[in-house]
Amino acid sequence: MTDLYLTLAVFLLVNLLAALWRIARGPTPADRLLAALLFGTTGVAVLLLLAYAGGGAALVDAALVFALLAVITGAAFVRRIWREESNGHS
């Protein structure tokens, strides 16, 4: 099972590298932030897989913090940066 966990972790990391392209290109600020949120979720999955591949149960706590972080970042973005009066292109 450990081999499968590590293979899937590598696969998810390749997904993350593909999402980096959207951060580099993203026409509106929201697209960049959505890619960052995808990083958070996929990071949770990678951490859980690493935890069960022999990394220890403490990694599950780190995954919990990852899931919590997305709300803080997204709320700060919506409240502080993406106001109505500014146009869509940064």
Binding site: L20, I23, P29, R32, L33, A35, A36, F39, T73, S90
Partner: peptide, 9 residues
Amino acid sequence: FRAVVLFIV
């Protein structure tokens, strides 16, 4: 803004 998002990532 792009720099901040890349910093988070």
